[in-house]
Write a protein that binds this DNA or RNA. Structure first.
Lengths: 133, 133
DNA sequence: CTTGACTCCGTACTCAAGTACGTACCTAGA
DNA sequence: TCTAGGTACGTACTTGAGTACGGAGTCAAG
C-alpha cells in the first residue's frame, strides 16, 4: 500500500488548515519537514496529515500550541499519567472559565432585562451599572 | 468640594491599572488627556478615575475596547436601546462560548476519567483520542 | 542645590496563532 | 515551449491589550 504523497497545498486542504499554517507548524517544531522524493517539492504522507489533525483536535480541546508540543512528546502511547496531568490542569482552567462566563451571562441577562423594562426613565440601566461606584 | 487632582501614577494606582495602561487608553481615545493646572504635570480628576473604572467594568463584562468606546459614546444616559443592542449581541456571544466550553469540559472530564481507570494497558486514552480517525 | 522619584512623550516590544508578501523556482498540461 | 498555477523559503505584517524603554524635564525634601 503506497502512501499518499501530498504536496503542501494538498495536505493543508486535507487537514482543513491554511497552507501558511502548515509552514508555521514546521517553524514551531510541531510538524517535521518531509523530504522531497520526486524532485524539488516536498511530499507529505499520512503521518503528516494525522499529526495536523492531532494538533487541531488538541487545540479544540483548549490546548495551546506549547501544550500540544508537550502532548506530542508523549505520543509514544506511554506516559499516560503525564498526559492525564496536562488534561487535568486544562480541565481546571476550563472550569474556572466556565464559572466566570456564566456569572458574566447572568449579569448581562439582568442588565438586558432591566433595559427592556425601562420605560421613559432618563437613565440606561446598563450604562448606570458601568458607572456605578 | 475641591476635586482630588491625581498625577498619572496616582490615578493608575487608584484604578488598579498599570500606569502605561492609562497612557494606552489616551492613545486609544478612551480617556481624554487632562490639563496641567499647576505646572508641567497633568492632573487627573474624579471623572478620569470614574472612566477608568467604567472601562474595566465593561471589560469584565466581556466588552472589547472598541465596544467600550461605543458604550462611552452612549454615556449621555440616553440611547438606551443602542446600549441594550450591544449588550444583547454580547450576551449571545457569551452563550455560544459557554456552550462550547461546557462541551469541552465534558470531553476533558471523560478523557481524564478514562485515563484514571486505565491500568496496565499500553495506550493512553487521551493520546488515543487525539490520534483517532 | 542636589538627589531620588516621578512624569512626559514617542517609539518599540510582547504574546499567540497565525496570515501575507516577495522572489525565485518548479511542474503539469495544451 | 509556453504558461498558469503551485511550491520553497525568508521576512514582515496582523490583532488585542497592553508593557517596556530611553532620554529629557520636573518636583519635593533635605
Amino acid at each position: 500500500m503506497a502512501e499518499a504523497a501530498y504536496t503542501i497545498g494538498q495536505v493543508a486542504r486535507a487537514a482543513g488548515v491554511n497552507l501558511e499554517t502548515v509552514r508555521f507548524y514546521h517553524r514551531r517544531g510541531l510538524l517535521p519537514l518531509p523530504g522531497r522524493p520526486y524532485g524539488a517539492v516536498r511530499r507529505y504522507g499520512e503521518e503528516s496529515l494525522a499529526r495536523l489533525r492531532f494538533i487541531r483536535r488538541a487545540q479544540r480541546l483548549g490546548f495551546a500550541l506549547d501544550e500540544v508540543a508537550a502532548l506530542l512528546q508523549l505520543n509514544d502511547g506511554r506516559s499516560c499519567s503525564a498526559a492525564r496531568g496536562l488534561a487535568e490542569r486544562k480541565l481546571a482552567v476550563v472550569e474556572d472559565r466556565l464559572k466566570d462566563l456564566s456569572a458574566l451571562r447572568d449579569q448581562l441577562t439582568s442588565l438586558v432585562r432591566r433595559c427592556r423594562t425601562q420605560r421613559g426613565k432618563v437613565h440606561c440601566p446598563l450604562i448606570d451599572a458601568l458607572n456605578e461606584n
